[in-house]
Structures are given as structure tokens and as C-alpha cells.
Nucleic acid binder design. Structure first.
Lengths: 173, 173
DNA sequence: GCGATTTCTTTACAATTGTTATCGTCCGGG
DNA sequence: CCCGGACGATAACAATTGTAAAGAAATCGC
């Protein structure tokens, strides 16, 4: 899956960051793409001072505000570390070079984009169809490692509810 | 915007349908793409017998379950006419031909896919950030024609609430 | 090691939405 | 022209979630 990815992994630079480091701020243009070697990240949006987590990322994931990275537009969300991380980073510039020089990367990017669309739609439909309790149960089913690894208030914000409400749901079970 | 689109409009076949015609059923693989000449469509998902509308389409829009159309996977949603419609349709086969023979169409499709990702994300974030009342007000702001043209219970299902709740929200204003 | 911070739970109350049912209006087909 | 279905409003009640505040436990940083 990330086979092609490995081909230009040597272009990356190693970077270590503390927990709670903002790697990309909402509204800024994404100039860097990250590959997680160790640790985890989240993306989140600001809503009147209240944070809403939109996604979690773990070892092996590549993370960027693709929309921003690709179109040079302000990112709709922030990217932040949740744990101390070891990251491999590549700049937009270097990535452009790779795009033009390494065959197949372009197609892989498109496939990646397509998968993101599917994922985004799937998450969206889960929101439409299920209530918070059902979404929590779905999370336990499909991504148990998230429950075990991520502090609950982040999960609550990911589920679209308050930590109080998540605590109640957990007690109902 | 649809400039390139016009270039192969002659490949389309005209089709007239009644209101409430299912053009693609959830779970089936999309083999046809539609261009709306007159009328409007909606996409919706089935949730335990309850319909949830995910999007509305009007004159000038092109509609397909792109994800299904492109990857030959079962569609996650149905496509249905809300009014009597005049449609221009193209089969997957003919579309493939166009893709290979007409230069630039491929890039246009990718751009279209990218825009769908952005749109999908935007709608999703609106769900995350806003309550039903705010989403209704946003709808009035940004897409007033939808309010005027579409029966309320479809709008309610689009907003993720019951018709009863939408009626209450309208009365609160 | 220890104080400060973070995280989670609990409580009480308010606000919103869902559920079910009834009723009136409008519109189109036979 | 009339009947039936579609559509929207309303009411009463239940269930869920949000809000604010307080406290206990765990964890972090120095």
C-alpha cells in the first residue's frame, strides 16, 4: 500500500516533537507533509474557542492538509501532536520535485485523494445515520486502539459531544 | 467551469423522467452519469427504513455516484428525481471512451473529484460546528433556492432532523 | 518528590430534539 | 368533482444532550 511511498522516503527529514505541538495552524497554508514514525497526531477545527477533533493519525500514516497542500489554500484545520512524536517530513518544494521526477507518484496521490474522499464520506454518513452512542460503539468496534490510546475528551470532541456526555454514555453500557 | 464539459455533450442521450423516479439504487453499481437540463434530483441514504437526504442537484449539475462510477463499487446512496426532469445521460462505457479520446477530460475529472472532496468536507464541518437551527440559517443564506423549491420534509432530512423539529425551528425565528 | 495541570466523573438544571398522534390544507388523478 | 395522498403545523410526553460547577484521581514537569 505504501510501497511506492518508500521509494522517496529518503527525501524526508527526521523531526522530533513534544506532545501538543502545533504542526500546522488552521488558516495557514500547508507547506509540509508528515509521515509518522512513532506517536500520534490529530486534526481539529476551532469553533468559537471550542476544539473539535476531526481525525486521528498513528504510526505509518501520512498526514497533511492535502487540500491546502495541493491548492495553496488556507487549511481548514490544525494538525497537532498528541504524544511525543518522531516524524519524517518533506517540504512542498521537494514534494513537487518528486511529483515531476518520480513516475507513478502522481497517480498514487490521486488514489490517495480518492480514498480520502471515500473516508470523508463514510465518516459523514456515520454522523448522519447514528447518534453519539452508536458512533461511540462503532468506534470501539472499528478502531479500538483509538479508545485505548487517546484521552477521552479528545474522543468526545471527535464524536461531536461534550466530555460529560461521553462519560454518561460510557456509564450506560 | 463546465466549458470542457460541453465538448462532449453530444455523446449524451436525452431522457425524461417523472417525479420520484429512482435513477440509481443504493447498493447497485453506477453505470450512468446524468446531466440535469431541467428539474432537480436528490441523493439519499437508507437508514433502517428512514431516508436521509445528503444532497440536492439542479439545472446544470452533473450527477453520478462518482465513487461507484469510478471504482465499480456499490453505491452508498440512491439518486432520485424530485420533480419531472429532462436529463442528458451518458453510459460508463461511452464515458470511458471520452476519457481516453478527448484530451483534458481526465484532468477535469480529477479537478471535479477534488472539488467534491472539498465540498464534502465543508458540509461535514458544518455538521460538526453547528446545531440544526444554525444549519437551517446557513441553508437560507447560501442556498435560498433550495428552501423555496424543495418540500420541507426533504430539507429536514437533509439537516439531520425530523420534520417536526424543522417546523419548530421555523416557528422560533 | 511534589505542586500544578490534566483528565474524568458526577450532579442539578435547562434546552433541544425525538416520538407519536391528530388535524387541516393543498394538489392531482381518476 | 371528489377522494386520497402528500405536506405541514401542533401538542404532549420522553429521552438525550448541553451547561456549569465541584471534586477525585492520574500524570507531568521541574
Amino acid at each position: 500500500m505504501t510501497g511506492d511511498w518508500d521509494r522517496f522516503k529518503h527525501l524526508f527529514k527526521r523531526q522530533e516533537v513534544h506532545a501538543k505541538t502545533i504542526l500546522l495552524q488552521e488558516g495557514k497554508i500547508s507547506r509540509t507533509m508528515f509521515f509518522i514514525e512513532k506517536g500520534c497526531l490529530r486534526t481539529w477545527v476551532n469553533n468559537d474557542g471550542r476544539e473539535i477533533t476531526t481525525q486521528f493519525f498513528f504510526e505509518g500514516d501520512k498526514v497533511a492538509s492535502i487540500e491546502s497542500f495541493r491548492a495553496n489554500q488556507p487549511s481548514l484545520y490544525s494538525i497537532e501532536s498528541l504524544e511525543p512524536c518522531i516524524l519524517q517530513t518533506i517540504s512542498q518544494q521537494e514534494f513537487q520535485n518528486a511529483l515531476e521526477n518520480l513516475p507513478g507518484i502522481k497517480e498514487e496521490m490521486q488514489e490517495h485523494l480518492f480514498k480520502r474522499l471515500l473516508q470523508s464520506q463514510k465518516t459523514f454518513y456515520s454522523y448522519l445515520k447514528n447518534n453519539p452512542q452508536q458512533r461511540y460503539e462503532e468506534l470501539i468496534e472499528e478502531y479500538p486502539h483509538i479508545i485505548q490510546r487517546i484521552p477521552q475528551h479528545y474522543i468526545a470532541s471527535y464524536l461531536g459531544i461534550t466530555p460529560v456526555s461521553l462519560s454518561r454514555i460510557r456509564n450506560r453500557r
